[in-house]
Structures are given as C-alpha cells and as structure tokens.
C-alpha cells in the first residue's frame, strides 16, 4: 500500500488543493495580504499558523468528548491564544528582527479563521492523529499560497529573493506590488489561475 492511499495522507492532502483555505474557503486573507512583502516573513507566518493549527487541532481532538458544546468556541480560543503567545515569545527571542517586521500579525494568528475553522469542522469529530494531519495539511495549503504571493511580490517589487538580488541591475522595481493594493492584485491573479486550473481539471463540468 503506497503512502498516498492511506487515510492520513488523504486528510493531509485535502487541505493542500481540494480544500485549500485561501483558494476555496477564502479564509486567512487578511494575513496573507499583510505579511507577504518578503518571503522570509511569509515563511515565519506559515510556521506560526502551522504550529497553532496543528496543536490546537490535536488538543481539541484529544479532549473533544469533554468539551462542553455550549462553550466550545471559548475553549478553542483559549487553547489557540495560549499557543500563539508561546510562539510569539519564541519568535521574539530567536528572531527579534523578523518579529518586529511582522508587527501585530503574529498575535493576530489567534483570530485567524483557519485555526478555529479546523477545530470546529474537523477536530471536534476526529481522532487527534487525523486532526493533526488535517491541521498540518490545511496550514501548509495556506503557507504555500502565502509563499507564492510573497515570491511574486518580493521578486517583482523589490528585485530580491530572500534578501538576495535576483533581477538584473536595469530592472525597474514595481513599487505597486510592495504596497497593500499590490497584494490584492497578486492574490486575485493566483485565485484566477487556481480556479482556471481547477475548471480544466474537472473537464468543464460544473
């Protein structure tokens, strides 16, 4: 049996493409626009969201039978905020410069709909192991889109990639892409491409 046939892989891969949080669920848009001026920041953001989603989902799944239905949102928020604060502190200690550039957006992972969405939609009715894979898959789907936007914006807007110059000297930087509206443009183009690919893959049937 190959790895791509296991249930775990299916759960993981679902978030990458079929149920990509940004392309399909249109969640996490705010942060995907805010932290994508540099590839490095986008990657750190991906790490943060992955950390929060995987562990929140796992913990929620582990105690799902005990969580009072009425207060379940409260419990999710509590777990997520604790984890995000821990991540924020870690980041401040290890990469203070990146942490400063990201500003409030690390803390705002708490309100990232992806984290809570996965707890509510998946972890509340699945085992911890599958929930962890689901969280990882969804956040990786989010992270890949984030990186795609960041590469577009950094290369075309700044002429660098991960801080190293990649464009020829004569290249005129596209300042629009660095500004906030540029993020919308990138996201729209990617969303259009993703939908076009999806349509052609399903053979035109709706």
């Amino acid at each position: 049996m190959s790895i791509t046939n296991t249930q775990g892989w299916k759960v993981f891969a679902e978030g990458l493409w079929k149920n990509n949080p940004i392309f399909i669920m249109v969640l996490g848009i705010c942060s995907s626009l805010a932290v994508t001026t540099f590839v490095k920041n986008a990657f750190v953001m991906y790490l943060g969201v992955a950390f929060a989603t995987v562990f929140t989902s796992t913990i929620v799944a582990a105690i799902r039978k005990r969580i009072p239905a009425t207060y379940r949102m409260l419990v999710f928020m509590m777990i997520t905020s604790t984890l995000v604060i821990v991540f924020d502190r870690l980041l401040k200690l290890t990469l203070p410069a990146v942490s400063k550039e990201m500003g409030p957006y690390v803390g705002l992972i708490i309100t990232n709909c992806i984290v809570m969405g996965r707890s509510e939609a998946f972890a509340m009715s699945n085992t911890p192991w599958l929930s962890a894979l689901d969280g990882l898959g969804t956040s990786t789907g989010y992270g890949l889109v984030l990186l795609a936007i960041a590469v577009l914006r950094e290369v075309l807007g700044m002429g660098t990639l991960l801080g190293f110059p990649v464009m020829p000297e004569a290249y005129a930087r596209c300042g629009l892409l660095i500004s906030a509206p540029g993020a919308f443009l990138c996201l729209t183009v990617l969303l259009f491409l993703a939908n076009a690919i999806r349509d052609s893959m399903s053979g035109g049937k709706k």
């Binding site: 009072p68 009425t70 207060y71 419990v75 509590m78 777990i79 604790t82 604060i85 821990v86 502190r89």
Partner: peptide, 21 residues
C-alpha cells in the same frame, strides 16, 4: 461538570502562560 472543565482549562492555560512569560 462543564464549570469544572472550564475552570481546569483556564488554570492550565494561565499557569502555562505565567511560566512562559
């Protein structure tokens, strides 16, 4: 029972945050 659960959760989170801080 729900009340105890919430109390326990809050306590764990608070203690964890205090230690991390």
């Amino acid at each position: 029972r729900d009340l105890w659960f919430m109390l326990l959760m809050t306590t764990i989170c608070t203690v964890l945050l205090v230690v991390v801080d």
